[in-house]
Amino acid sequence: MMKIPHPIPYQGSKRNLADQILRMFPDNFDNLIEPFAGSAAITIASAYYFKANSFIINDINQPLISLWETIINNPKLMVKSYHDIWHGQLGNEEEYYYQIREKFNDTKQPEYLLFLLAKCVKAAVRYNAQGDFNQSPDKRRLGRNPSLMRDDILRVSQLLKGRIQFHSTDYQNVLDIATASDLVYMDPPYQGTGLNGGFNYAGNIEFDNFVVSLFELNNNNVPYILSYDGRTGDKTYGSPLPESLNLTKIEINAGRSSQATLLSRNEITYEAVFLSPALVSKIDMQKVTGKHNYQTELFAS
């Protein structure tokens, strides 16, 4: 069975949970909107499984959106660029990585970013206070093989070309264009991950402002899915959302984290998604929860 293509490696990607998240989609809607696109895992999966026909992705990280635009609208150029950059490292891997990193910081060219993400530690985007990419290389590997990258780039372009809009702006601007006929999927940067070495936007999403945005979506009857918090063992992540949002919480068993595996721990990570009232009114919740071992909790005001 052919796998869903994922050309951009990205820490925190929801690609392994995408099939479960897609089961919460309504049958019909106009646009799938991702205000915090990152790896665009849900957009790609939605196109692959014919769950949506029109897509809007946004990320405040402009080079990342430029990368997506090139992959989807000019895939052959990106295939060749990645091939040439990847082969250029052979025999001089570590020094070459830092040379490419410097070129990216000087030019913000998307082909350099793709190589850095394919090669850096944990595929984690890290920028310093000056806006320069500062993540180190993973010295154990060369990064995604160009032939595999080629296949993913060409397949994603085939799935999305002509059906997607690109934005690089504050997430609130993108939420402003969402209507009751759309579906919004949000996977905001986790609290605490942005201030200590993440990309600048990760630390600038103020919790209170984000909650106001959720209330506005509710007031406009916009259906949305929010990947927000989670728990591992007794440890819970994320500040609690107001009960007055009337969200339905569903926990997804995400298995053991890589950290737990390294430490030989048996702790299971559960990732939470929250469904808006407008979405719950459009889907069969018994069907959604009955097929999977989700724990559901309806917050009532």
Rank of each mutant, 00 (worst) to 15 (best):
M1Y: 13
H6V: 02
P7F: 15
Y10E: 08
N16C: 04
F25V: 10
F29C: 06
A40W: 03
T43W: 09
A45H: 10
S46W: 09
S46I: 06
S46G: 05
F50H: 15
K51T: 11
A52I: 09
N53W: 08
S54N: 14
F55Y: 09
F55E: 05
I57H: 03
I60S: 14
N61E: 06
N61D: 10
S66D: 15
S66Q: 11
E69M: 06
T70F: 03
N73G: 01
P75Y: 15
V79R: 08
Y82V: 02
D84S: 00
H87T: 01
G91M: 05
Q99S: 05
R101H: 06
F115A: 01
K119S: 15
C120F: 12
V121W: 15
F133V: 02
F133C: 01
R140Q: 07
D151R: 14
R155S: 04
L159Q: 05
Q165T: 14
H167V: 00
H167A: 00
Y171N: 11
Q172W: 08
D176V: 01
A178I: 11
T179C: 13
A180C: 07
D182Q: 06
L183G: 13
V184P: 08
Y185P: 03
Y185T: 10
Q191R: 13
G192Y: 02
G192D: 07
A202I: 02
N204S: 14
I205C: 08
F210S: 09
S213N: 04
V222Q: 10
P223V: 10
I225E: 13
L226C: 07
Y228Q: 03
T236H: 14
G238D: 04
G238Y: 05
G238F: 05
S244G: 00
S244F: 01
L245A: 01
L247E: 13
L247F: 11
K249G: 04
I250Y: 15
A254C: 07
R256S: 09
S258F: 04
L263P: 01
R265Q: 14
P277S: 06
S281G: 04
K282M: 11
M285N: 08
K287T: 00
L298D: 11
